[in-house]
Design a protein around this nucleic acid. Structure first.
Lengths: 229, 229
DNA sequence: ACCCCTTAGTGTACCGGCTACACTATCACT
DNA sequence: AGTGATAGTGTAGCCGGTACACTAAGGGGT
């Protein structure tokens, strides 16, 4: 079967930068390419957009096919289309970012991908296409997001300690924060629910576990409140 | 001539949201469509991406062809690709925004466009395709930009008074600012050069004219300084 | 049982930037 | 000379951000 058009058409692909957080490290989901071009190289999960397929649907489909991961929220990052970025011919890619809770999201390779793995952001291999550039943009966006929106909660388990949250934010921003000020700030935001539960089995004083009050955040947001760490 | 592909390919277009500022009003450049679909309706300038053409090049080309406008800087806004947004078939558009100084940029209709005009943002007609949605996104982006980057200077003439600048910022943000605080803030930023020249021919005390010190801004930016109004 | 190690959890004082606010100076025009 | 309109200027209070150090609690080892 073939498709005929009056004018030449560039191809359209989607790619996903999926972040996870584990063992105090920020990680990115990559696949090892199972076919040409760049066979054997690591790349962002992604693939060709289907006919009459919506962009976010295509991202979810490719992610599921290639890695088994199904993120809740997608955010569009941008589009890349410089001629030459894909040796197969002129290709425009629309990139998305997502955050997932790593517990329960063990990546497994599937169709089209020889392997899928979570790489620490500080130890990334060279990437196929211009995916390195896309990752740089995603990293910048993530840093901006972590200070202006409560994104940490999408990366952490449902229940978490304040120290875990602070360590995550520090990891993403790349700079240390003052413990008391961080806690004071979060308490003043009124978006964390203390559960009365505590860590267990830790060789030290156990930390109380909190839950993110998304309803409260949505309410405050609607009233014009601007989150900022 | 025709082009054959093994798989179906959505079409790719580019669109531009170009802002100008005149007579204390923020304006957007629109074209009247000269052909189907939506013939006679107003739309964002834009068109199909050429083979092996880079995205920004395509935007500039279409802008020039349709309106005669040639902006200095383009910023990518995002991509829209929901099936059904274009009655001709599945089409992905990559939208860009730009700011121009309106003095000397009289829009004139050209190829493909029956007419091209600057519309005040508060009196926009209904737009073709999903261009209304794209404009909403552009407006949000502009508001964010005006407080975090010195964008006002791209919309104003080379020489401007502090009152002109303040009025522009107020217009974009949609809220009034305190005169003394605004001036104090800008002076502390150290990015405005007083020229010693003054308005002429105004029926009131003449205001001093300033010039934006882009070199200083670039220098401060590089040192990690964050502009904020 | 006691000690030790590790991390949880807590308050205050200073500083700087943001806000609110009103009057005099200057110019064109009549 | 008078009028109308806008340029241009300083200060005091408030709030939020920052810097900073000790006690509390629990597990593990001796």
């Amino acid at each position: 079967m073939s498709f005929v058009y009056e004018y030449p058409r560039p191809a359209v692909t989607v790619d996903a930068v999926v972040y996870g957080y584990q063992a105090e490290e920020l990680r990115v989901l990559l696949i090892e390419r199972g076919g040409p071009p760049f066979r054997g190289a690591w790349a962002l999960p992604g693939g060709f957009l289907g006919e009459n397929e919506d962009l976010p649907d295509a991202v979810r489909r490719e992610l599921l096919e290639e890695t088994g991961v199904a993120p809740l929220h997608l955010e569009q990052l941008g589009s890349w289309g410089t001629p030459g970025r894909d040796p197969r011919g002129h290709t425009i890619t629309v990139a998305y970012t997502a955050l997932v809770r790593l517990s329960g999201h063990t990546a497994k390779a599937d169709t089209d991908a020889a392997d899928a793995r979570w790489f620490p952001v500080d130890g990334l291999p060279d990437l196929a296409f211009d995916h390195g550039e896309i990752l740089d943009a995603a990293r910048e966006r993530l840093i901006e997001s972590v200070r202006t929106r409560p994104v940490g909660f999408d990366l952490l388990p449902d229940l978490f300690s304040l120290t875990e949250l602070q360590t995550l934010v520090e990891t993403v921003m790349g700079e240390p924060l003052d413990k008391r000020n961080f806690r004071k700030k979060l308490q003043s935001l009124d978006m964390l629910i203390p559960t009365g539960e505590y860590e267990s089995g830790v060789p030290r004083r156990a930390a109380q576990l909190y839950r993110f009050d998304r309803a409260m955040y949505d309410k405050l947001s609607a009233e014009g409140f601007q989150f900022r760490l």
